[in-house]
């Protein structure tokens, strides 16, 4: 008798909420595959250059136009070399090293711009939703920014701020800051709108009323009660924001704007390879695939996270 009672009490032990989230996340096959790919590509661009120690900018003109190693299967006479498993470009730069170096920039731009956008979006969304007096002002400001086209804005920013930023932070960091800021300040609006809506709904709930009745100040109210409850839409919009930022950076580089020409990013490698697309398809396929798969993976993760973070779905 006593034994059974003892067991029952052991089962009652409360489970960590994040463990539940993970359990739910695991059931979404696409999300798991996406996560696995994101981990892989992140390791590829961060740990990869340590293992594959080739300078991406090193020219070796006598060793140009090497095809990827798998071309041997289709064409025995193809010029291949184990020294350059993905081949080299028309100036003899190693393509694998370039994709690693380019990926690091593209992912860094993506993550930083996303964090910036989510931060601004959440801040404005919470303030607009919680303080009635700020609502009209902040939301009209959001509408205004929504109406700004990104590419012309970035061109103007490039013209105005390139020289001062270059002088202060050096050419690469200066452009990095410019592009990240540009993408960040033009993609926070969706997050702000979603967060505002959720905060307004939450504000009318009983637990908020209860908290207010014991005299919780606004600062505490937001950090303790509101933010944890709007976490799931924020995380979903963060994953979508990461994808958008990577694509925007690629588009800018593809247009020949953005980073200097000797500074590889995925978009830039694509841009440089378009001329010889028919003769050397691998030079556009690899960076193109990297961009598409990363964005797809991140979208799937966002999808899985939405399901996992929603207690109503998780309950079943």
């Amino acid at each position: 008798m006593t034994d059974t009672t003892m067991t029952a009490t052991a089962v009652e032990k409360p489970r960590n909420k994040w463990w539940d989230v993970w359990a739910q996340f695991r059931t979404h096959k696409g999300a798991v595959a996406g996560l696995a790919f994101l981990v892989f590509i992140t390791l590829f661009v961060t740990v990869g250059p340590v293992l594959w120690d080739v300078d991406p900018g090193k020219l070796n003109i006598r060793n140009k136009d090497v095809r990827p190693i798998y071309m041997v299967i289709f064409d025995g006479d193809a010029k291949v070399s184990w020294g350059n498993p993905m081949g080299t470009d028309n100036l003899g730069r190693d393509i694998m090293a370039n994709i690693m170096a380019g990926g690091r920039v593209s992912l860094a731009v993506g993550w930083t711009a996303m964090i910036l956008a989510v931060f601004i979006g959440t801040l404005i969304g919470v303030f607009a939703g919680y303080f009635k007096r700020l609502d009209g002002l902040l939301m009209r400001f959001t509408d205004l920014v929504l109406a700004l086209p990104l590419l012309p804005l970035l061109l103007v920013m490039m013209l105005l701020f390139r020289d001062p930023l270059r002088a202060t932070f050096g050419p690469e960091n200066g452009i990095f800051i410019l592009i990240v800021t540009g993408i960040g300040i033009t993609s926070w609006m969706q997050t702000a709108r979603i967060v505002r809506g959720d905060v307004m709904a939450l504000k009318e709930r009983e637990f908020v009323l209860a908290a207010r009745s014991i005299g919780t100040p606004a600062r505490r109210m937001i950090t303790r009660h509101l933010l944890p409850n709007v976490m799931s839409p924020i995380m979903v919009s963060a994953t979508l924001g990461l994808a958008t930022a990577i694509i925007t950076e690629s588009a800018l580089s593809f247009l020949g704007l953005g980073f200097p020409s000797d500074f590889p990013t995925w978009g830039k490698i694509l841009f440089d390879s378009v001329d010889r697309m028919t003769a050397f398809p691998e030079r556009v396929i690899w960076p193109g695939l990297a961009i598409s798969l990363t964005v797809l993976a991140v979208n799937y993760i966002g999808d899985g996270l939405r399901d996992a973070l929603d207690p109503r779905i998780r309950g079943h």
Partner: peptide, 20 residues
């Protein structure tokens, strides 16, 4: 051309920043 010339100038101790 920029990439090639940048490399040669690097060899003689001149740092080059490219812009297009």
């Amino acid at each position: 051309f920029q990439a090639l010339i940048k490399e040669w100038w690097g060899e003689i101790g001149v740092e080059t920043e490219l812009r297009n």
